[in-house]
Amino acid sequence: MAKFKKKKKGGSGAINTASLPDIVFMLLFFFMVSTTMKEVEMKVITRLPEATELSRLERKSLVTYIYVGVPMRQYQRSHGTEPRIQLNDQFATPEDIQSFIAQEREAMREHERPLMTVSIKADYDCPMGIITDIKQALRRAQALRINYSARQGDDLAYNF
């Protein structure tokens, strides 16, 4: 009983997969270009506030980040539970900002330095005191373009 017929010799041949690598490479390049590696290890908790009138930060190479928030659980023993500033991988005080900005600016190309933007990624529940300190330090450091990082929210979020 020949339930399984032998394939005829003249059947359609194997599908040509020569273009598969091309397609995969195309996807690969897309992800390589669009990806941003996490550069710093977060030591503070930043739950971003919500806003509606957002603009996009265009060029990542011009942006310097300042993180503000309550230290993560494993750091609370050594750094307390009050909101703290994180610059790069370290906890910092507002006095450190000026030298940090100078250092970041030094690392930039010269013609890009005036376009430097500082993005403040702060937890929504922070008191404004620490933010004000940061802003004053940034003014002294002549880093005047700032960006309050926020995520898209809906209008109904405002029930103050």
Binding site: V24, A51, L54, L57, S149, R151
Partner: peptide, 22 residues
């Protein structure tokens, strides 16, 4: 491809841009 798919974070940075006074 899978490596980059895993490590990628697609979140674009958005926020309110302001100029501080000198």
């Amino acid at each position: 491809l899978i490596f980059f798919l895993m490590t990628t974070t697609m979140d674009t940075d958005t926020g309110l841009t302001r100029m501080l006074p000198p």
